[in-house]
Nucleic acid binder design. Structure first.
Lengths: 346, 346
DNA sequence: CTGAAAGCGCTTACAG
DNA sequence: CTGAAAGCGCTTACAG
C-alpha cells in the first residue's frame, strides 16, 4: 500500500505535501494549514479537525519549513552569533539557549574564527535566512552598528550595550572586585593581567573593574604588565613565558587572567618554570570552568553562571518572537569569587 | 540608525528583492538570478552582467535564502546532529566543520539533552528545513535507522557504522590498546572502567578495545568494576566516590575513563579521598582535552584529533553536496596515548 | 542572449 | 465553517 510505504520511509520517499493531506482528508489545503498550525478555534469544524489529524499522522506529514517561512515572511530559525565557541563556557550557554528555545525553534550557530565577529556582508547573508530571532553573545559595538536589525534580538554578556537591545548580562565587575580584594588581603602589591585579544566588552569590564579595585587597595598593574592573547591555553602559556622574566624582576607576584583558559596556560608555564604557586606566584581567572577545580593547583576563579545566561537570553528572545513586550529588558546575573589553591595555600 | 525603522519589522519590510534589482538594471528577474548565482556563462551578455552587478551592489541585494531554497528544493543549511556539545572536544570538531564548509553553507546545530539523540519526529522536523547536507556525530545505530535520509550525509566518529554512510572515524582502538599496554607495564592487574552512559559506538569501542588488550596482558576488569555516568565531572566524581570503597577492597589500582571529563571527576574525588596518584591509584582518560596537561596530576589520555575530524567530515560532505563521488568514503584518523603523571610518577 | 511564465509549499485575507 | 486564489521570492525550463 502506497501510504504504508510512505509511512515507513517518510524521508526517503517523495515529500508529503499539504495538498496530499488535503486530498486524503477531503478538505482544502487552507484547512490543512489551519489544523497543522493549531489555528482552528472558530475556523474548522471538529469533524474536519479529526479527519485532517488522521491524514497527517497516516501520511507522516510535517509542515515544510521553507514553504512556510516564505509565506509567513519569517523562519523558525534562531541565529546565535558568537565570537568563540572553543571556550567550554560557551557550550553551557548553548545548552541553556537550547533548553529555553524548545523544539519550536532551530538553533543556527554563526561562528567565526577565534574572536572575530562577522561583518556587514556576513550579517546580510544571515538575515537572508529570515531568522525568527537573533542572539548575540559578547559582541563589540562595531558589530552591533553593522547589525542594525529590527527583529527580535537579545544580547548576551554585552555590558554597556544595553542601548542597542534587550540584554542579559553578568555582573563580572562584582567578582572582579572580590578578586582584587582577595589578592590585596593576601599581600600582593604588583600584579600582571593577561587579557583576551578580542575587544569584547565583557573582557574590558573584567579588566577595568579588577584594575580599578586593585588600585583602590594599593595594588599596581604597570602597563607593561598587561598583555593580551587569544583564548587558548598554548597562546597564553607562550605569552606568559615570554613576559615572566621581566615581570619577575619588576616584582610581580600575581597574574590575573581574563579567562580560566588563559590561566591554565599561565599555570602550566609557571610550573614548567618551577615556580611555587601561590607562594612565588598567585594565579586567578574568570569563568570558573569545570576544570578549574581539578587543575594543579586548583584555580581561583570568578564564577559566571553560563547555563542561566543562555537560559534567560532564550526566554527573553522567545517572548519577543511571540510578540510580547519585555517587562524587564535588562537582566543581570550574579558572579562571585571562588577561592582555590592557586591564590591561597592549601 | 532610524529608531522609527527599528520600531517596525525591518526583517520583513525593507527587503530588497530580485524584482527591484531587475527594475533598476533594466532586465528580467531571470537575468538577475543568473548573475547572482554566477550562472552567466553563455547566457547573459557582458553588458547585462555589468548592469546587474552594479544594481546589486547599489541596492545591497542578497539572494533571499528562503525563496531560493523553495525554488531549488534545497537550502544552504548543513545540520550537525550531536549528542553532546558540553564536551570541549566537540567545540574543536565544530571549528573544523565550519572551516571546511566555508561561507556557502550555514551550520545548524541540532543538540539534544546530554547523550540523547533526536528521534524520528525530531528528525522529520529537521528535514523540513531542507538541509543541503547532514553531519552526524557519534550516532547510535537506532538513530541512523530512524534517519533513513537520502541526501548528502557524513558520519563522524561512528565506528562500525560504515554501512550507513560515508564516515570519518578515529582509530580509538589503537590508543586504547596502547593504554592497556602502558598500564600492564606499570604493573597493574585489576582495573575499573568509568564509561559514558550514552550507548554510542565510539565509547563501546574505547571500552572493548581497552578491555580486550588488558585481558591479553593479564589485567582483569570485573563486571562490578565497570560503571557508567553522564559526561560530566560531577557525575563521574559522585559515581567514583560511591564505588571506590568496594573497588579498593577488591584490589583495583587503576581507573580508566571513557572521556577526560569523567577522569577529571575521578581525579577530583580521588584527591578528596587522600589517594596518592598514581601510586595508590592510576587514572587515565580519552580525548586529551587541553586541560589534561594542567590537571593535578596531569592526566594520561588517548589523544584524538578533534579539529581534523570536523575538517575532514566537512570536506567529504561538501564534495557530496556538490554532486561529486567520494574517492574514499571511509577515512580514519590516528589516535595515540599521551602518558602523563596520573599513571606515571613524576 | 532574453524574458514571460510556471512552479516550489505554504499561509492568509477574502468571499461565500 | 470552507475553499479558491493571491501571493511570499526565487529558479528554471521554455519559447523566442
Amino acid at each position: 500500500m502506497d501510504s504504508a510505504e510512505q509511512q515507513q520511509h517518510p524521508l526517503r520517499s517523495r515529500r508529503i505535501t499539504a495538498a496530499m493531506v488535503a486530498a486524503r482528508a477531503g478538505v482544502s489545503t487552507a484547512t490543512v494549514s489551519l489544523v497543522a498550525n493549531g489555528k482552528t478555534a472558530g475556523r474548522v469544524s471538529g469533524e474536519n479537525i479529526r479527519r485532517v489529524r488522521e491524514a497527517i499522522s497516516e501520511l507522516g506529514y510535517v509542515v515544510d519549513s521553507v514553504g512556510s517561512s516564505l509565506a509567513k515572511g519569517v523562519s523558525s530559525i534562531v541565529i546565535l552569533v558568537a565570537p568563540d565557541i572553543s571556550n567550554p563556557f560557551f557550550a553551557k550557554v548553548i545548552a541553556g539557549v537550547r533548553e529555553s528555545l524548545g523544539t519550536d525553534y532551530q538553533l543556527l550557530l554563526s561562528v567565526t574564527e577565534a574572536g572575530e565577529f562577522p561583518h556587514a556582508d556576513d550579517v546580510r547573508k544571515l538575515m537572508a535566512l529570515r531568522p525568527a530571532g537573533l542572539l548575540v553573545d559578547a559582541p563589540n559595538a562595531g558589530f552591533l552598528d553593522d547589525l542594525a536589525v529590527g527583529g527580535p534580538l537579545v544580547l548576551l554578556d554585552a555590558p554597556g550595550m544595553e542601548s542597542y537591545a534587550p540584554s542579559v548580562n553578568l555582573d563580572v565587575a562584582h567578582g572582579a572586585r572580590e578578586l582584587a580584594a582577595h589578592l590585596a588581603t593576601a599581600g600582593h602589591r604588583k600584579v600582571a593581567y593577561v587579557d583576551s585579544v578580542t575587544g569584547t566588552a565583557t573582557f574590558a569590564l573584567r579588566r577595568e573593574a579588577f584594575l580599578a579595585e586593585a588600585e583602590n587597595r594599593g595594588i599596581t598593574a604597570d602597563p607593561s604588565h598587561i598583555i593580551s592573547t587569544t583564548i587558548d591555553v598554548g597562546a597564553a602559556a607562550a605569552a606568559f613565558a615570554a613576559a615572566w622574566p621581566q615581570w619577575q624582576r619588576e616584582g610581580v607576584t600575581a597574574v590575573v587572567c581574563g579567562t580560566d583558559t588563559h590561566a591554565y596556560g599561565v599555570l602550566q608555564e609557571a610550573r614548567v618554570a618551577g615556580l611555587r604557586i601561590p607562594d612565588q606566584l598567585a594565579i586567578a581567572g574568570f569563568d570558573d570552568l569545570p576544570y578549574s577545580a581539578t587543575s594543579n593547583p586548583s584555580l581561583t576563579s570568578v564564577h559566571l553562571p553560563a547555563t542561566p545566561l543562555g537560559l534567560k537570553a532564550g526566554e527573553q528572545l522567545r517572548r519577543l518572537m511571540e510578540g510580547h513586550e519585555l517587562k524587564q529588558p535588562q537582566l543581570t546575573l550574579e558572579s562571585s569569587l571562588v577561592v582555590r589553591n592557586s591564590t591561597s595555600p592549601a
